[in-house]
Design a protein around this nucleic acid. Structure first.
Lengths: 208, 208
DNA sequence: ACCGTGGTGTGACTATTGTCACCGTACTTC
DNA sequence: GAAGTACGGTGACAATAGTCACACCACGGT
C-alpha cells in the first residue's frame, strides 16, 4: 500500500490525511469466507476496503441471514465507523466474499481526524449517506416488490458488482432473499424462458 | 426557546454550542399534516425536532407510502443532516403528525460546528447511528416476519411513541404497512380474540 | 329524523409464496 | 467406475396475503 494507490482508491482527501492513513492505518489481509464482524461484537476500529468484496447481512434470532449490501474497494464500513466512534456493538454480519485487504483505523484517530480534516468528515458523512441509500433501496425492494421483481433486482445488482455470469447457487440466492430454494429455481426457470437469464450449474448469466 | 429548555432537549453539548444553536438556528412552527420534506426535494438545512412528532415514509413510483420511523423531540433528521452536508436531495417523505416546532440549522454551520465542537460531531454521528438502527429493525420486520407479527410490532411501537390507545384507522395502518385494509381488519379481529388489543371506532388499544 | 360518508366486519375467491416429496444429473472421492 | 453428495427441476399441496363484493353501523350535517 503506497501513497499513489491510496489516492486513487480514496480520492479527494487532504494531503496530510493520506500520510496519516499510511502511518496509522493497519493493513489486514483476510480470506474469502472470513467473518469480519459478528452480530453483537464490539467494534474497536473503522474499516476501509482496499481490495476485495465484503458482504453485509442482517441476522435474525434463528440465524437466518438476509443480504443487505456489498462493500467494494474505496468504500468504508459505515457501521464500523459510527460504532467505532461510540464503541458500540455491531448489528450486522460482515463476511469477506473474496480474499480482501482492509485498512483498519484505530478508534481514536476517527475523532481526531474528524475535527482536523474536513475531507475526512466529508468522507465519513458521504459513506454514511451511501449506506443509508442502499438500506432504503433494500427496503423498497422488500416492501413494494414481489419475489420475482426482487430476484431480478438481486441478479442485476449482483452481476454489476460481482461480474457476469454469476457464480452462485440457487440455495445461496434463496438464503440472501430469505425465501426457499424451490421458489428461486421456479422463478429462474420462468426468467430463462423469457430470455432474461441463462442458467447452468453453479452459474447464472444475467441477460437483462 | 431558551437555553435551559435547549439543554434538556439536547443534553451533553458544549456550552458555546448551545449559544450558537440559539443564535443561528431558526425556529419553525409547522401544522399537523404539513409536509416537511418531499422526495426529490433539495435540502438546505439540518432539522432538529423541538416539539411534536414527525413521521418518515419511503415512497415508491406509484405514490405508495411505507412508514419507516418517527422522529421525536430531541432527535434530528439524519437525512437532512447528511443531505445538507452535501446539498443533495431527499429520498424520503417527512410529514408532521402533530403540530411541531423545528430548529433549522443553515447548511454552512453544519460544516463549521462539525470541526469546532466535538459534541456536535458526536451528536450527528449518534443520530445517524440511531436512524440506521431503526432502518435495520424495519428491514428485520419485513424480511423475517409475517404480516401478523409486523402488525403487532407496529402497534407496540406506535403505542409507545404516540400513546395508548392509538387514534388511527385500519386504512392508515394498512397504508403504513403496505397491505390492504381487509387484511389489517382481519388480523386485528384475531388479536382482539386473543386479548392483545381492544378495538373501537378510530381507536385501538394495545394490551400487549 | 334522515341521509351521506367513512370506518369496520366478513365471506368467497385468487394469487403468491412456502413446504414436502421425489427425481435426475453433475461432480468428487475413493 | 461406484458411491456419495450437492445442485437443480418439478408436481402437489398448504398457508398466507391480496382482491372483490357487500352489509352494517357510527357519526355529522341538514
Amino acid at each position: 500500500m503506497d501513497l499513489p494507490q491510496l489516492k486513487i482508491l480514496f480520492p479527494g482527501l487532504e494531503e496530510p490525511l493520506y500520510q496519516a492513513l499510511l502511518d496509522h492505518g493497519e493493513l489486514k489481509e483476510v480470506r474469502a469466507g472470513d467473518t469480519l464482524l459478528r452480530h453483537g461484537q464490539t467494534i474497536r476500529s473503522a474499516m476501509l476496503i482496499v481490495e476485495g468484496i465484503v458482504k453485509l447481512y442482517r441476522e435474525d434470532e434463528n440465524g437466518r441471514e438476509f443480504f443487505i449490501y456489498h462493500l467494494e474497494p474505496g468504500q468504508a464500513c459505515s457501521l464500523s465507523m459510527v460504532c467505532a466512534a461510540r464503541q458500540e456493538t455491531s448489528e450486522v454480519l460482515a463476511v469477506a466474499l473474496t480474499d480482501a485487504t482492509l485498512l483498519s483505523i484505530p478508534l481514536h484517530f476517527m475523532d481526531a481526524w474528524m475535527q482536523q480534516y474536513k475531507s475526512w468528515y466529508q468522507f465519513v458523512i458521504t459513506s454514511y449517506r451511501n449506506r443509508f441509500e442502499e438500506l432504503l433501496k433494500t427496503i423498497d425492494a422488500i416492501a413494494f416488490s414481489s419475489m420475482d421483481e426482487r430476484l431480478e433486482y438481486y441478479l442485476r445488482t449482483q452481476a454489476e458488482t460481482l461480474g457476469n455470469p454469476l457464480k452462485i447457487t440457487h440455495q445461496q440466492i434463496a438464503s440472501d432473499l430469505n425465501t426457499s430454494r424451490e421458489v428461486v429455481s421456479r422463478l429462474l426457470k420462468k426468467m430463462e424462458n423469457r430470455n432474461k437469464v441463462g442458467l447452468s450449474r453453479n452459474a447464472i448469466e444475467w441477460l437483462g
